[in-house]
Write a protein that binds this DNA or RNA. Structure first.
Length: 923
RNA sequence: GCGCCUGUGGCGAAAUUGGUAGACGCGCCAGACUUAGGAUCUGGUAACUCCGGUUGUGUAGGUUCGAGUCCUAUCAGGCGCACCA
């Protein structure tokens, strides 16, 4: 009986399903372990061979933890809302739900074939009303909250209202988008509508006028992480800046905590660094510059307070709210013309041009330290969204200010000794200050670091400003003008004021529409829905939520997926707590992983959940690239020439489907049948074969290099695929897929099978295993245990191969030996392990076995080889008894015939005995 | 420009964390069994070599009895951020 993976895999997959082998529940008597994969967006293309890499790695870990006695939560679900399904719906008129369900069915089918140990009872789909009820619920909580900067957490907005009633904005400690201040009296005299408008500036989920990334082609706004280099990440369409009233989430209030708590998670340094970059901490000062001949002033942010003596002009962002305050009537026309010009430039155009532009406002500001008047300009190199949207320009020590100053012929005052600013600015934060003292502040002679500190101190003391930390992280824009997303649980009252739906009206189910396009009047697709109103006739919000809404708390929902009373019960959350191991790609570093952490912290603030961070350990699996194959057609013929002969001809390389190529040899018949124009193809062969060329490229349909896991499973079985994907290299590394090596892994499984069966007879006996065999297996136990803990699956697979080869050459047939071996193999190749487990006489699943431990006694050797080196250069090997002490080994090393030759009569200076089974003799 | 990561055979990669570099697999070479092999099995496979050895982990230095591993500089590739004041 040969190793028949087809029957075995089918049989055990069915067994696991029927026995609910992977179902898990809260069990206070057992320690828990939560292993999670980033849930996929079910695209129409299905899985390719790269997708399961992370799933296999996490599956191995989940199975291992279970064998170690942990109660393992290992769920899977679908991030089902998304653009491709909607785009497809627009083209075909088919409801995105239909496409999505088809794709999910396909994914499920593909995943099932790979033998994962998911508890499918816990599956979630973001587009399921039972699921998105809790997405909407969380949004409502955010709507009803503000961020208290003193307590550093979210609090009910009612508490803020109570504060306003008593004290106005004084000491309210609220994170806000507005700079307006008011007294209790003013607040109490406001109308309800006015109050609501004011509160909107404080809510964690708020409706705000913000500059958004507007993608005309997609007809929607996008979050910052959905835009890259001025085009949309999905689709690659141009994105422009536009002022719009949109739902936003006050993620920026959590910037400090998002940054700080990175210390406490086990993520790779590069992902943490990416997040730190994205959050963008910078410590500086806000300083007020009065406007000359006016009672108004400009508030600016700077990290270079030390350069305040070199400020020769001020610059406002074109969108700055200061613009209208400072433009003089003489300059009005020029400013308007400039603003108009800027507005019509897309983000992309601004980036590409990079040319200096700007306009004088006509007003002057007063430098609060020197008292000098300096002109105020407007330029698009200043960003409205960062700091205060206004800067003090120090051309001598900032390259952007320098370029601007040169262009407009503004003075440049060097402030650092030895800095030559005739050609370029001196941006480095080092050197000794000059030109920086007067009766108020003396910086001359200090170094830059001291000067910054001194200036900050002065700014605080003199009241012209204050020390301030700024973050680059912006609030997340939360509205999408799309159909296929979660509806907002918001309606608009008589005054067109947004109001929250009552929680018991959730879920607010996505309505049907006749088309998935915006309305004729330009409203989002939900504008087409009939009766899209509350019970008492108020219109409902027409926007839907973005993709990250549904994916931000799904890991919590898995803990308690069928609960209709809460997102997650306290009981379930207290038990499962947080994800212990999260596996997924790096592409979510600035999106999902920030939003999830924010969402988690918000829920934590209210005590809905018990952990500060959602994902304790994060492993990023690498991307699997494609390995394309080429055939070489001789120009203007239908003749193809093999790789190593192609240089003799004038050829064009043509991508050929990798599925009709094996070890770079082309299946000529299959090629002729592949496409009609190759039907009569002729070939120039080498050694009777047609050898294809190859290249590493992205795996994509157009390169014909997509390898479908279904095909591999069909040909080699899921166990071989699982082992091979792990054997390919470290899980974290990106690497090309190359089916060529898979035979080696497949052979290993066949050999293992051959240890159990010869022809149809079971070979195992009850004889006692030899010391050699015990050593081999216990070495394996030790190695594999260590490898799994450290995620080095590739070396584990190698260790299995070595062990099986050793047992094979020992002709070991002892049943006792194979018990632990099969358990070790179970995480990697669950089907064959399950089969062999039953062959060994067990009638329960191998998933419930106990992970073996190794016995050091078996690993001891009777004779040990030691290398002997002279001055670190390896020379010869000696054999010593295993129980020899250091002195004895040194003596034997010197006594060896080789030593005489290398010492050449000299006395050794010293002899170093090292753990790596090496004796080093220094001469 | 700033930050992070990675450089080891023909290829994917190992290396007990400072201790005999190249485990394991692919490929290749030779052999065995076969009517046949895109099956299976056995042996070999870093380079050079006067067969004693010598040289080898991107490059150049340094620390050390000893460096793929640590330090300094440099080159190359990948990723992230990028008018963030």
């Amino acid at each position: 009986m040969d190793y028949n993976f087809k029957d075995i895999e089918k049989k055990w997959q069915q067994y696991w399903r029927e026995h609910h082998t992977y179902k898990c529940d809260v069990d206070a008597n057992r320690p828990k372990f939560y292993v999670l994969d980033m849930f996929p967006y079910p695209s129409g293309a299905g899985l390719h061979v790269g997708h399961p890499l992370g799933y296999i790695a996490s599956d191995i870990f989940a199975r291992y933890k279970r064998l170690k006695g942990f109660n393992v939560l290992h769920p899977m679900g679908y991030d089902a809302y998304g653009l491709p399904a909607e785009q497809y719906a627009i083209q075909t008129g088919q409801h995105p739900e239909i496409t999505t369900n088809q794709n999910i069915a396909r994914y499920r089918d593909q995943l099932d074939k790979l033998g994962f140990c998911y508890d499918w009872n816990r599956e979630v789909r973001t587009c399921d009303p039972k699921y998105y009820k809790w997405t909407q619920w969380a949004f409502l909580q955010m709507f009803k909250s503000y961020y208290n900067t003193k307590l550093d957490k979210a609090r009910p907005i009612d508490e803020l209202v109570a504060h306003f009633e008593k004290h106005g904005t004084k000491d309210c400690n609220a994170h806000t988008t507005s700079s307006d201040e008011f007294t209790a009296d003013e607040w109490n005299n406001m109308t309800q509508v006015q109050c609501n408008d004011v509160l909107m500036n404080y809510r964690i989920a708020y409706l705000g006028n913000t500059m958004v990334n507007w993608c005309p082609k997609l007809g929607t706004v996008l979050a910052n992480d959905e835009v890259s280099e001025g085009v949309s990440v999905r689709g690659g369409f141009p994105v422009e800046q536009k002022m719009m009233r949109q739902w936003c989430i006050r993620v920026s209030a959590y910037a400090g905590r998002l940054l700080r708590d990175l210390e406490n998670v086990e993520w790779t340094e590069s992902i943490k660094e990416t997040q730190r970059n994205w959050i963008g901490y910078s410590e500086g000062a806000e300083v007020t510059f009065p406007i000359a001949d006016s009672d108004k002033s400009l508030l600016i942010f700077t990290t270079r307070a030390d350069t305040i003596f070199g400020v020769t002009f001020m610059v406002l962002a074109p969108e700055s709210m200061y613009v209208d305050e400072v433009v003089t009537s003489e300059q009005r026309a020029a400013v308007d013309a400039y603003l108009d010009e800027v507005k019509h430039k897309t983000e992309r155009e601004r980036m590409i041009e990079k040319k200096v532009s700007g306009v004088f406002t006509g007003s002057y500001a007063v430098n609060p330290i020197t008292g000098k008047n300096i002109p105020i300009y407007i330029s698009d190199y200043v960003l409205a969204g960062y700091g205060t949207g206004a800067i003090m320009a120090v051309p001598a020590h900032d390259s952007r200010d320098y370029a601007f100053a040169k262009h407009f012929n503004l003075p440049i005052i060097p402030l650092i000794e030895g800095a030559d600013v005739s050609e370029e600015s001196f941006d480095a934060k080092e050197g000794i200050m000059i030109n920086s003292s007067n009766e108020r502040l003396q910086l001359n002679g200090l170094n830059v670091k001291e000067a910054i500190a001194r200036t900050k101190q002065y700014i605080e003391e003199s009241g012209i400003g204050h020390v301030k930390v700024n973050y680059r992280l912006r609030d997340a824009i939360f509205s999408r003008q799309r159909y296929w997303g979660e509806p907002f649980p918001i309606y608009y009252d008589e005054n067109n004021q947004p109001q929250p739906l009552d929680e018991n009206e959730l879920p607010l189910v996505l309505p049907e529409v006749d088309k998935f396009l915006p309305t004729e009047t330009g409203e989002p697709p939900l504008g087409r829905a009939k009766n899209w109103v509350t019970a008492d006739g108020h219109p409902l919000e027409l926007n839907t939520m973005p993709g990250f809404a549904g994916s931000s708390a799904y890991y919590l929902r898995y803990m308690d997926p069928h609960n209709d009373e809460a997102l997650v019960s306290h009981e379930a959350n207290d038990y499962w707590r947080q994800v212990d191991l999260y596996v997924g790609g790096t592409e979510h570093a600035t999106g999902h992983l920030i939003y999830s952490r924010f969402w988690n912290k918000f829920l934590y603030d209210y005590g809905y959940i018990c952990e500060l961070e959602p994902f304790r350990k994060l492993v990023n699996q690498g991307m699997i690239q494609g390995r394309s194959n080429f055939v070489y057609r001789i120009k203007d013929t239908n003749t193809f020439v093999s790789l190593n002969l192609k240089d003799k001809y004038d050829v064009t390389p043509i991508h050929v489907d990798v599925n009709i190529v094996d070890k770079d040899a082309l299946d000529i018949e299959a090629f002729r049948n592949w496409r009609p124009d190759f039907e009569n193809a002729e070939f120039i062969l080498e050694n009777g074969k047609y050898i294809c060329g190859w290249a590493i490229e992205k795996m994509s349909k157009s390169m014909f290099n997509v390898v479908n896991p279904d095909d591999i499973v069909d040909r080699y079985g899921a166990d071989t695929l699982r082992l091979y994907e792990m054997f390919l290299g470290p899980v974290e590394a990106s690497k090309p897929w190359d089916t060529n090596g898979i035979d080696g892994v497949n052979r290993f499984l066949k050999r293992l099978w051959g240890l159990f069966f010869k022809d149809d007879t079971m070979q195992l006996t009850d004889e006692k295993p030899s010391a050699e065999a015990l050593k081999s297996v216990h070495k394996l136990i030790k190695k594999v245990t260590g490898d799994i803990e450290s995620f080095s699956y590739n070396t584990s697979v190698a260790a299995f191969m070595i062990c099986v080869n050793e047992l094979l050459s020992m002709k070991c047939r002892s049943r006792e030996i194979y018990e632990p071996l099969v358990i070790l193999l179970a995480p990697f190749a669950p089907h064959i392990a399950e089969e062999l487990w039953h062959v060994l006489g067990h009638d329960t699943t191998v998933c419930d076995a106990q992970w073996p431990t190794w016995n050091e006694d078996y690993l001891k050797e009777s004779v040990v080889n030691y290398g002997v080196s002279f001055n670190g250069k390896s020379r010869y090997t000696i054999e010593v008894p295993a129980d020899a002490d250091e002195e004895e080994i040194k003596r034997l090393a010197l006594a060896d015939a080789g030593a005489e030759r290398w010492l050449a009569g000299k006395e050794p200076k010293k002899i170093i005995f090292v753990k790596g089974k090496l004796v080093n003799i220094v001469v």
